[in-house]
Design a protein around this nucleic acid. Sequence first.
RNA 1: GGCCUCAUCUUCUAACGGUUAGGAAAUCGGGUUCUCAUCCCGGCAAUCGGGGUUCGAUUCCCCGUGAGGUCACCA
Length: 478
Amino acid sequence: MKPVRTRFAPSPTGLLHVGGVRTALFAWLIARQAGGSFLLRLEDTDKNREVSGSGDHIQESLRWLGINWDEGISIGGKYGPYMQSERLAIYKEWGQKLVDAGRAYADPYTAEEVDAFRQEAKAAKQPFLYRNHRPENPPAWDGSQPLRFRSDPKSYTWQDAVMGELSTGPEAIDDFILIKSDGYPTYNFCHIIDDFLMECTHVTRSQEFLASVPKFLNLYEALDITPPTLVTLPFVMGPDGKKKLSKRDGAKDVLDYAREGYLPEALVNFMATLGWNDGTEQEVFSTDDLVAKFSLDRVQKSGAKFDEQRLLWLNGAHIRALPLQDLYARTDTFWPESAGGYEEDFRKQVLSIVQERLKYFAELPSLTSFFFEEPTTEAVQTLLYDESNKQLRKLSPEQKQTLLQAAYKELEQSDFSFTDLEQRLNNLLVTLETKPGILFSLIRIAVSGAPFSPALFDTLHVLGKDTSLERMQRALTL
RNA sequence: GGCCUCAUCUUCUAACGGUUAGGAAAUCGGGUUCUCAUCCCGGCAAUCGGGGUUCGAUUCCCCGUGAGGUCACCA
């Protein structure tokens, strides 16, 4: 058995979104599970569509997700170069081999002429087949004309690792361009050559290539190459649930998720379970889990809608599962500006009490800012005295002041340890004959000025005695 | 139009022909000493239609229907 080698071969034409990255992830999972290699090759054969910087962007996205490659661009390897634009001589040589074998020929038509054929077919409501116009005496190929494959139309039945048995008739096979007139190969040609030369055992790609597979099979035959295992993944659908995810549908750059404070392992978990499950009721998977449990025969055949809400939930689940130290290391760039002057130890305490309500790190400032800066008097006043709180609106301003005053007096004597706070405030409930919904709300609002915040005893404890009392004092003057 | 693919709750999905069709997200109730969240309990909610095959079809076959892909000197 040959060692498993899978690859991701994007073209540098823009940002990488979840749909594209999932293809990479599945290929990566196949390789990692089998203890094989994962390659990153750049298919930069279309100079017109190329977007500068996107090669780097793709690599950065993969690195962030932890989809590491063993060979490929930036790191090299024994099958390089891994940038197709640097392999033109190889494609030319293979093209010539096909010419010599009578399986390729120079296309004598201009683009306009071919287009006229196409329009003709379209008007007749027929599929366009170039081979119906195949020239009888094509000129010698000098590299200035496109090189076309001389196909051998026939029926095919083949196995796809995800889709199962597939078949088509000869009408699916046509003469397609191998090398363009600018000397660059087409995807249809060079991916086959490269996968062969790089000894890839699996070709993982999304559904839009399904209709091209018979053509590939025909070419493999002409080249006398045994095709690798074909792995066709269903689409990731956009928000409308009908069309595949695309930038136009608002598909986000993968790195946007990094910027918003999603955990890469959560996104990996999300993408993997978009079209795959392990057959159990497990929903949350670590990346190691996925590597261990992934299997192609449990990959879905139909497209799955990208559900951002589920991603959000999954991210929260991963955040909650993270040890505090790890979590802290990830939040580095997300703290509110006012947290700058505070010790790591204090920030960690804050983090530990907001951990369970954090869905993504961009929420960190709104969740924690009152630990680092004084809440505005407007915020405190509004929360304390407007009518929105159904517990507090039963009380007069005077009653509220009285309760707060009593709480202040009690807390003055506390050492602000969690247990002491708990004990004193619980006793105070009895003494004042009031309910937690009232007393605790008042204190919580006075010290946080926030519509919601962590549990009261935690908040007071982390905030500390001085700050807490100061803020209560201030609330008493409003 | 030709060819190809797909089809279970709103969404992601489970169910080697035999289940009251399960789980999770969302949502709606209730509980956990305040809010928000977590956690726990509960509710709502699906096999696209029609024919077969079978003692029995979500599952197998056929025909519809719907959705998507493809038919580039793009990948």
